[in-house]
Design a binder for these strands. Structure first.
Lengths: 342, 342
DNA sequence: TTGAAAGCGATACCAT
DNA sequence: ATGGTATCGCTTTCAA
């Protein structure tokens, strides 16, 4: 219960036989300190187990070592992974993360941003759609002189620093894969037509078909709600109207499972026997934004979009910005992965 | 681009015509301040838009308004939801969250705890198994005089402040539900026998069977790996050996899906037709630790264990502890929910 | 009930 | 290349 004594730069200075100024200088690597003195100070720091008090440092105007993260909704797996990756990367750089939630529609983002600014952070990341608030957020951060980066799953057009996945490329990848496997009549199932993310993916799918001179019919692009059942029904009606379809790109993992059921129902799979589970006539591909793909034992080729990788990328970018706030705007893009069906 | 001027308690004191001491006192609600003076100060705060500088406050020894959260792995849906709930609850109390990850086996937890302590936080929550480090963590926090609460999915026995779900009760609930539905021969599938969480659940299942005078056979408790395929196989062999089983309790959502496939395969469901998807002969129940249950369109009765609720509970407890560190140890338990199959 | 003043720990300006 | 010291914004005795 002995409250461990706090070590300050004064203690270090005393032990090293120098002044606090010198210690501070050594700590920040600023002023020109002789190698010898530097060594003495470092030794003292080591021996005493000194750690710089960020409160004091920040109070005096230095960096806080803290990055603020406002995520729209942590319960969304993709953003949970992003947060995990970001935190991991920043921890390894000796930084910390202030976590706040902005609401799915971004309704609290401005308030949270203000909180972060008054709390004192070195930089801020906003993960998820900021809704209407984008411009206001940007303005406020600039006013406070704090670097701000937006991260999201779709490409909301704006003039901010931005990190986002390459949805189009992901769609191209899976589509090309299906084509390389010999499929020629490829359909799309899933997502709501109002979704920006879906728009980008369908775009990539469509562009790839055309690029390879394959048929593209708008009737082959089916919209459906976010449930297995709806996906299964969409697939069935699609196949009954267009029996020649030999492959389907699905909007996400849930759609893929539903599509699988749909194929079974439509008799386009060999049966329900487990031993024959992995034989099929119509190939499936889908997008995976979380680790889910490892969980489903159905034969699907996945375009993976890793939240974790996005977190790493964000960490890198925000630290660059903190060190050099004057850099020009940058749009970073996260390349997709491809996991071929077994 | 005009850097908004910082408002300090000095400004407030000036505007209100009182001393900084008075303002500080009003802020913290300590010393006895006359209602009139208090009002004047509050008005000034309001007008100037003053917000207390936490760095300075913390430096001088006051509270930081920050709670540290060390979560073993944010990418696990349950803990993501816990974090989301905790953050949400603390935000509404004007607190903030420092987020760190401790590693799935708790390997970094002690280091992270030290980081939090030196950063200055009012309280610390550890979510997930701390592995071997539990006692050391407790000792370190006590030494630093900072309240610490452990939260996890299973009941690792210790003498710490603790919040955890009631796995036994959850198992009792679903088992009782199956019995109330008229099922008499109820089996268990899923999980690895080394799992503490599983142990608690199987215990609840077993106890309930006995309580109702129903048959309990250890051969009816099947272990299996974490995949649909393995669950499906386990169900098939279980049913072929014990054809009279009329209900199955599944370890988790993934197992439930696998079990469903297994039932189909074993011909214990009416067919694969979507229209008949929800007719069944063998009833299923399972535990859900995330929102997943809303996503699967299979007829399963769920015992829900809400990470979000756990987050709320944690927020409440840690704030109590911060205000009153002397309270005795407390083990809080999170009651499960029940979502009956459609 | 309220005020004056001494720090908390680190930084940076101004000397030396 | 180093050292003295005022200062950041707030909390907290101690006095009045």
């Amino acid at each position: 219960m002995t409250m461990a004594k706090k070590i300050t730069i004064n203690d270090v200075a005393l032990a090293a036989g120098v002044s606090v100024t010198t210690v501070s200088l050594v700590l920040s690597g600023k002023g020109r300190i002789s190698a010898q003195t530097g060594q003495r100070v470092h030794n003292a720091i080591e021996e005493l187990g000194f750690v710089r008090n960020r409160q004091a440092s920040a109070l005096r105007g230095g960096q806080t070592g803290v990055i603020g993260l406002i995520v729209s909704d942590l319960a969304q797996a993709f953003y949970a992974e992003t947060t995990s990756g970001l935190t991991e990367a920043l921890e390894s750089e000796g930084r910390m993360v202030f976590l706040l939630q902005g609401g799915r529609g971004g309704e609290h983002m401005l308030a949270r941003l203000n909180t972060l600014i008054t709390q004192g952070v070195d930089g801020i990341i906003i993960a998820g759609s900021p809704g209407e608030a984008g411009a206001a957020l940007r303005a406020r951060a600039q006013e406070a002189g704090i670097p701000l980066i937006f991260a999201s799953r779709a490409n909301y057009p704006d003039d901010n620093d931005t990190v986002r996945p390459d949805n189009m490329l992901a769609a191209q990848r899976v589509t090309e894969h299906l084509i390389a496997q010999g499929h020629q009549r490829i359909a799309w199932v899933g997502g709501e037509s109002s979704s920006l993310i879906r728009a980008e993916r369908v775009g990539g799918y469509c562009a790839t078909l055309l690029k390879y001179g394959l048929p593209f019919h708008s009737e082959w692009v089916a919209e459906c709600g976010a449930s297995q059942k709806q996906a299964a029904e969409a697939v069935q009606s699609l196949l009954s109207l267009n029996p020649t379809i030999d492959a389907i790109v699905c909007y996400n993992g849930l759609t893929a499972i539903g599509a699988w059921f749909g194929l079974l129902r439509a008799g386009r799979q060999t049966g329900t026997g487990l031993d024959r589970f992995f034989e099929q006539q119509v190939a499936l591909a889908a997008f995976a934004e979380a680790r889910e793909q490892g969980q489903y034992d159905i034969p699907v080729t996945w375009a993976t979009i890793s939240g974790r990788e996005m977190g790493y990328l964000l960490a890198e970018r925000i630290l660059q910005r903190v060190d050099d706030p004057e850099r020009v705007l940058h749009h970073a893009v996260l390349p997709p992965g491809l996991v071929v069906a077994p």
